[in-house]
Design a protein around this nucleic acid. Structure first.
Lengths: 340, 340
DNA sequence: CTGTTAGCGCATTCAC
DNA sequence: GTGAATGCGCTAACAG
């Protein structure tokens, strides 16, 4: 391995000068700089990651915590994070927060590794989560990407406003002439979807539409882990209702897709008899028949913004408190229509 | 920050002794060990990641290179890698090899970071890839997870045998009475699917089934990036053929699903008129109607094995040359049936 | 503008 | 079984 000392010898200068060149200190004679650069190239010198770290304290690494890997949503987010982190010299360690037991231990290990910052996603927003993260936030830059958590905390955050988006979707439904709007929710304490549901309730209220408990179908996700199948159960539920809704909103697209498929199987016309709106704008919704009306969030862009927020914190060492929210965009396709 | 020296002072011993305790050197009096451990706990001491690295040369980090993040397949693989890596103290840096331009640069950066090992996936298997990776392999443990690449290289590898699996699927089709078997392939140089295609050809040959170029539909993936839509095009192609196949195999499930959906839309009965087999066993195939017959590979398990292979290499410093292959498993569902 | 010096926190000899 | 000394490769004062 070639060290800074070898380069110094080769270029007939001191280690410090080499260090200055490597770190782009402008106060170096261009002659000497050239000589050093030549030596660096000749010897294929690259500064030792560790030795550098021991002095600067930086690993040039950001941890991205996600609750689930096998989910394209987080894949897209990852793309966004990398888009901005990699060009600035940061690499990403990905961590699974899906096992709540070990989450604190995981973060502990991250701290020991001198990670430069954490981008935090989760499904599990317990009451103790926010204080815990804020404590971590004192030691290390952190950006939250969960709406519910963000709203309980002063930490910087990036998220899509599921409340607003759902609220507006109800307004849209009301404008198209729907009056009884059902809701399909997955129960496994995914806070983001909880907030979407709240937005739906608010929308109902604002539009003067009634809500009754039977309009909410809660999928028993413990039992059925497959969202599409769960959605199909929901479809059956609404189809068999005595006083059927004329619209159904779902907390996520897969649920909506399952619901549509079951409803059609039972002979119910979509969107003529029941309008359906999903959430997330996954690819599948675009190609399923009829194409799903849904709410889209700019996942990749959100990843980008989160990464930049973290890097700003790292570099300015300011404890930013910014919260950036993104509005979901309603994408009207074939599962909704204007009623006459 | 608390250092080894603080602990030494607190426990009234020397730094060396603390180091020994931390590194579980058995040659330490149990009395002193207890004292040191107490001090460690009291002071919340954890060894400096950098200082340790500078001495041991290890980052306790494995890089997982994948060509695409937003793909559940790699998410599953990641789960497997983490399953075995994390308990042994390793964390994962994920890298995108999807931008071929920067791939070498990316690996270069990984080397500079003293990553302990690389698990390598790719879509792009050019002729120069194998030699390049073998050169890297001399400096750092590496495990290949690509069938085509593995077959050109002496490096250790873990992959599912797409050739064999496809070959066998053709046999199955032949046994159910199919004679004209079409194939849907995505063209964008994804080597794994190329090999699957070759297995199909071999199977055809072995079963005495004819092949003609019109039986192969190559999706123009440059134009249409959505696999399901691409599959729908394929469905249209086969439906409009004068001499329709009685079975179609697809290189990946999404293609197969699109194909089935289009075929049915055009009034063709699945599986009665045309049998369809996908590849990958994605969740969607299980719930789409009719449920897709497909080939499943143990992705997560493969991730586990790859991780263990890397760790073995790291720790024994042996340049393992093992290749572990997994057979795909044919999952017969509703898009194929016995013909009479 | 450049060289010298002094650690950063740890593992690893080598003595004792 | 334990301690003192050395150096890993680098950056950051401090001189000059």
């Amino acid at each position: 391995m070639t060290t800074i000392f070898d380069v110094a010898k080769e270029a007939h200068v001191s280690k410090s000068t080499v260090s200055r060149v490597v770190n782009k200190d402008p106060a170096v004679n261009s002659e000497t700089r050239k000589a050093v650069e030549a030596a660096i190239k000749k010897l294929h010198y690259a500064p030792s990651y560790f030795a550098k770290g021991i002095r600067t304290g930086e690993t040039k690494t950001i941890a991205l915590l996600v609750p689930e890997y096998a989910n394209m949503f987080y894949g897209e987010m990852f793309n966004g994070v990398e888009d901005v982190a990699y060009p600035q010299g940061y690499m990403i360690i990905v961590c699974n927060t899906g096992y709540p037991v070990s989450e604190k231990e995981y973060i502990e290990k991250l701290l020991q590794r001198n990670i430069d910052g954490i981008i935090y996603n989760t499904y599990d927003v317990g009451a103790d989560k926010a204080p815990f993260l804020e404590k971590i936030g004192k030691k290390m830059p952190i950006v939250l990407m969960d709406e519910a958590l963000a709203k309980q905390s002063v930490l910087p955050a990036v998220y899509a406003d599921g409340f607003e988006s759902s609220r507006k979707a109800v307004h849209y439904l009301a404008e198209t002439g729907c009056v009884r709007v059902g809701y399909v929710q997955n129960t496994d304490s995914i806070s983001a979807t909880e907030i979407r549901y709240l937005g739906y309730r608010k929308g109902l209220e604002e539009c003067g539409l009634i809500f009754s408990p039977d309009l909410l179908y809660q999928c028993p996700m413990k039992k059925e882990k497959n969202y599409i199948k769960a959605g199909m159960e929901a479809g059956r539920y609404f189809a068999e209702m005595k006083d059927r809704p004329d619209a159904v909103m779902a907390a996520i697209d897969l649920l909506a897709i399952g619901c549509v498929s079951q409803l059609r199987k039972l002979g119910i016309l979509i969107p003529d008899e029941i309008s359906v709106i999903g959430y997330d704008n996954i690819e599948l919704g675009e190609v399923s028949a009829p194409a799903l009306t849904t709410i889209s969030q700019p996942t990749r862009e959100m990843g980008r913004v989160a990464a930049q927020l973290i890097i700003d914190q790292i570099q300015k060492k300011t404890a930013g408190k910014e919260k950036k929210t993104f509005e979901g965009r309603l994408i009207i396709r074939e599962t909704t229509k204007q009623r006459l």
